[in-house]
Simulated assay, not measured.
Amino acid sequence: MIGGIDLHAGTVAVSSARDYAHAVLTALLGALVWALLEPIPLVSGVLALVAWIAAVKWRYRLGWFRSGAV
């Protein structure tokens, strides 16, 4: 829920955001992706961050830069 609030605020700032429920679902998907990639040794943080940004990019149809800004 907290991640959804942050995500919603970020998407309002950089794009035409959808509703809060969309942000919560995107935050849940991002957390799932992060949890799946975190156990990989050495590069887990970088892979998880890129995957989370990709999830935001996919759900909000933004570019890489705007998704990273969110």
Rank of each mutant, 00 (worst) to 15 (best):
S67Q: 04
I53S: 00
V56D: 07
L29V: 07
V56N: 00
I2H: 15
T26K: 00
L7R: 10
S16Q: 15
Y60R: 06
A51P: 09
V12A: 11
I40N: 06
A17E: 10
A21C: 04
G30K: 00
L25M: 13
L62R: 05
D6P: 00
A55D: 01
E38F: 09
T11R: 03
W64Q: 08
T26A: 10
L42T: 14
A31H: 14
S67T: 11
S15Y: 12
L42D: 08
L47M: 08
I2N: 12
D19M: 05
A13P: 09
L47D: 07
E38W: 08
A31V: 11
A35P: 01
L7W: 02
S44R: 09
R18P: 10
V50L: 13
A54W: 03
A13Q: 10
G30D: 00
W64H: 08
H8W: 14
W64E: 08
L25Y: 02
D6C: 13
D6G: 15
G10F: 01
A51Y: 05
V50E: 01
G45A: 06
G68A: 15
A13M: 10
F65C: 05
V70T: 14
L28I: 13
V56L: 04
G45E: 02
A9Q: 15
A21G: 12
V70W: 00
L28Y: 01
V56W: 01
S67L: 09
A54G: 06
S15N: 08
V24M: 07
A69R: 14
P41M: 09
S67K: 03
L62E: 03
L42S: 10
V12T: 13
W52K: 00
I5C: 03
A23E: 01
S44Q: 12
A55H: 00
R61V: 01
A55M: 12
I53L: 03
V12H: 08
S44D: 12
W64A: 10
D19P: 04
R18M: 05
A48K: 04
L49A: 15
Y20N: 01
E38G: 07
A17Y: 11
G63V: 13
A13W: 10
T11P: 00
V50C: 05
S44Y: 02
W58T: 06
Y20M: 05
T26C: 15
A23S: 15
L62I: 13
L29H: 03
A48L: 02
S44H: 08
L25C: 02
A69K: 14
Y20E: 02
A17N: 07
A55Q: 02
A27D: 03
H8Y: 10
T11F: 01
H22M: 11
A13R: 14
A23D: 11
T26Q: 06
V43R: 04
F65P: 12
L28S: 04
A54Y: 04
S16G: 06
G3E: 01
S16T: 13
I5N: 02
A69G: 11
